[in-house]
Design a protein around this nucleic acid. Structure first.
Lengths: 298, 298
DNA sequence: TCCATGCATAAAGAGAACTGATCCATGAAA
DNA sequence: TTTCATGGATCAGTTCTCTTTATGCATGGA
């Protein structure tokens, strides 16, 4: 059975307007309908109720007792709906939930989010971090910043930057072997997380096809930011995305001995559901990222 | 523009049910829809709002923040509507407005309406009397009892009884001329309202083709019940519908000297708008009339 | 691993809803 | 009085929303 058969909601909506204005024509104007449609809906409702709601007098309609009782209730009910709906839209536009990795959050967003909030005082930001790409149908998320291929079905994604990496270490540690001058020098030092697949990728790019990392003291940190902290503490060489550690280089806590970077093929992307690309808050964040990321692409 | 574009009322209705039960399938059952339809409507609403309302988790859905804020408001609004609508139906069914002539009201309804109200304690009766046939689109009326042809467009009408008439007078008046034995005797008496077109019709039926009524003392009462009162007071002979005065005959206040009745072609009918024939109160009144009127016809 | 549950998606069809044209009644203005 | 303007009703035609059937997918439990 059609839903509209049970409670003729559209007819009630039309009735509410017509009762408020005591005119079918005006109701039509208010609702963007023709007078014909209003007449049709009112009759529909009257048939459903089994009672006339309007008395048709020439050049004006008036409410019957029944209509007069019904009208204020309908006005009230539709007011509640309208308010709930519009306040929902407002609130929804005021809260931006960003999902990203712990590393990107701490190393990049932390530095730039303040600017976004200055520019968008009406938008509160909530940051969620996780290792996996967020599923927008299962979690409350507006946008995600992730490394990957940029191919996610149903999502619109914008290229942010290449996810390439290079060895980094503390200046003091480099000094212990008289400076790091060529890639092979790194093998004289402790490698932080030698199981990381980035290491063989980088060494291969550096011309050292098959470095023996297997026998080395093994310590898995799992998150780049922890590895970076270990490197800054002089505990070894870490392989990091230099974009994230520009500050630490500037402050002398880390050095990047080689310009050479390697990549594992996955880049950083901004992604959000295709259907929500016109949302105000999403547009605001997208434009903010475009301004902050020189390599941003649509 | 379609009305449903502005506020997707049907989608909200579906959302309300789904949010209350946290299940699309159950919502479908409650509303008499398939799960597919529910899914479609929810998506429609989410697109309209620009914000997901449900989180789809395996084997169950849960409300997002936005959904949780919206749901109680919708439940409230729909409750108001539902209550207003059902109380309207109850009230509407509890008040029966009968339009009829003053004569029918005082001479027939007055005697029988008590029975109707005993049988239908939930229905209050309001009686409106007027000379003209009521226009159901312009006046608050549920049923009308009228004499006429029974042909009223848009109205369902039931034959009640023939609208035939015969002379009636007080026994005392009849005695003054030694009893009324043949129609011509009536011409010896004062005729109440000799201008009434019923008189020539009846005399013609009685075989007196062209009685001279023109020179008689003229008094126009206009309503049958006033003429009847005058006849009972012995002021003359009135031409009346005997069905209305059976009581007065039984009490000896009036006599009907001849069985002969004449008719002007119009009968008594019960009428109401075709579209409202299934209304409970109208059905109740129709069945009541059927029981009280031996000549009632569908 | 297999089955039951619950939602999503696609395609197609029904019919509700809307429109445009026209008609009618009435009150006001000429 | 006649004419005009206003406001609804009616009718037929059309659009497109909504619904259904069929199917797929993911997950939790047996």
């Amino acid at each position: 059975m059609k839903l509209s058969r049970q409670i003729p909601l559209n007819a009630l909506r039309v009735f509410e307007s017509a009762a408020r204005q005591l005119s079918f024509t005006k109701a039509g104007e208010e609702l963007g309908l023709t007078q014909t449609a209003v007449s049709y809906q009112i009759k529909l409702l009257e048939d459903q109720i089994g009672e006339p709601l309007f008395l048709r007098r020439p050049r004006q309609v008036t409410l019957t007792d029944a209509g007069a009782r019904l009208a204020p209730k309908m006005t009230e009910a539709f007011a509640i709906m309208g308010e709930a709906l519009s306040s929902l839209k407002e609130e929804a536009e005021g809260m931006l939930v960003i999902h990203t990795t712990a590393t990107f959050a701490s190393r990049w967003l932390a530095h730039h989010l303040g600017t976004f909030q200055m520019e968008n005082p009406g938008i509160a930001v909530r940051l969620e971090t996780s290792q996996e790409m967020v599923d927008f149908t299962r979690a409350e998320a507006d946008v995600a910043i992730r490394s990957g291929s940029g191919e996610w079905p149903g999502l619109k994604s914008h290229f942010l930057m290449k996810s390439d990496f290079t060895p980094m270490l503390s200046p003091a540690l480099a000094e212990t072997i008289g400076g790091v001058n060529e890639p092979a020098d790194l093998l004289k030092l402790r490698i932080i997380d030698p199981g990381d697949i980035w290491w063989p990728l980088w060494f291969e790019a550096a011309g050292i096809a098959d470095p023996d990392l297997s026998g080395r003291p093994f310590s898995r940190y799992g998150a780049q930011s922890f590895e970076a902290a270990a490197a800054m503490a002089g505990q070894g060489v870490a392989i990091l995305k230099p974009e994230f550690y520009a500050d630490d280089v500037a402050l002398g806590r880390l050095i990047q001995p080689f310009d050479l970077r390697a990549t594992d093929g996955s880049d950083y992307w901004l992604a959000y559901p295709e259907a929500r690309r016109h949302s105000k808050k999403i547009r605001a964040f997208r434009e903010f990222m475009r301004g902050k990321m020189p390599t941003f692409r649509d």
